[in-house]
């Protein structure tokens, strides 16, 4: 005869809570509220005649698919203006930092004898922080309304790519001013390619778009509400 351990509701809820708590989209408050809902649902189903184990399984099923739930919680978090503002500030700082590192390289080049006409090349790169902020705000809007994964990754990649681009423009300008195509110093471009620029900016963005393209396409189908179709 099969010797089965009796079902422990509190232990089952604790495991469910632990599993849900591992999601970055849900904070402790969200998880506690869902646990509270689960307990109420189990109680009701038991009153309707289900065993405690059946009630637990039915209640967790009724709460819905975890991935869809995480997506909706993340959307709400991203729609919070405080979160958006913090994210914009952080990545604006990253964009400014990258642009400043380009200016630093420019200043060093001037000391080595490069022409001040380089300012004509430098000035457009002053737009970099603004570009970074714009990309970030677009990313946040995308994150709030479409795929939050994609939005977050864009938010990370945008300013880095913008900074990397600024660095490449500066390097090219400095090198050409210093002595034309024949005397291009390979070290700065190596640093810009390997450290902040396209590798950490553009490439991840392309990979993420490629990976999440289906999710983005399906985003319109992922609603908060049950489909009656």
């Amino acid at each position: 005869m099969e010797n089965r351990t009796p079902f422990d509701l509190n232990e089952a809820i604790r495991r469910w809570q632990q599993n849900l708590g591992a999601s970055p989209a849900l904070n402790a408050d969200n998880v506690e509220e869902l646990v509270s809902h689960l307990r109420a649902s189990v109680q009701r189903l038991q009153a309707d005649g289900l065993s405690v184990e059946e009630a637990f399984l039915a209640a967790t099923r009724r709460l819905g698919e975890r991935a869809a739930m995480e997506r909706e919680f993340a959307k709400v978090r991203m729609s919070n203006s405080g979160t958006r503002f913090t994210l914009c500030l952080v990545w604006l700082a990253v964009g400014i930092g990258l642009a400043l590192s380009g200016y630093f390289y420019y200043a060093l080049s001037l000391r080595r004898g490069a022409s001040e006409l380089l300012l004509l090349i430098i000035l457009p790169s002053l737009l970099i922080p603004g570009l970074a902020a714009y990309i970030t705000s677009l990313a946040c809007r995308l994150a709030g309304r479409r795929s939050w994964h994609l939005g977050w990754h864009f938010a990370l990649s945008g300013p880095l790519a913008a900074g990397g681009l600024a660095g490449c423009v500066l390097w090219l300008g400095v090198s050409l001013q210093s002595g034309g195509w024949g005397k291009i110093d390979p070290m700065p471009i190596f640093l810009w390619i390997c450290v902040p620029g396209p590798v950490f900016g553009v490439l991840p963005a392309v990979l993420v778009v490629w990976h999440y393209r289906k999710k983005l396409r399906d985003a319109g189908q992922v609603g908060i509400f049950k489909s009656t179709a």
Partner: peptide, 17 residues
């Protein structure tokens, strides 16, 4: 009218925001 249970909470939080 049947709401998908777990999905009501994000709506409530949005309304709270």
């Amino acid at each position: 009218v049947q709401w998908s249970e777990g999905m009501l909470y994000p709506v409530l939080h949005w309304m709270e925001n």
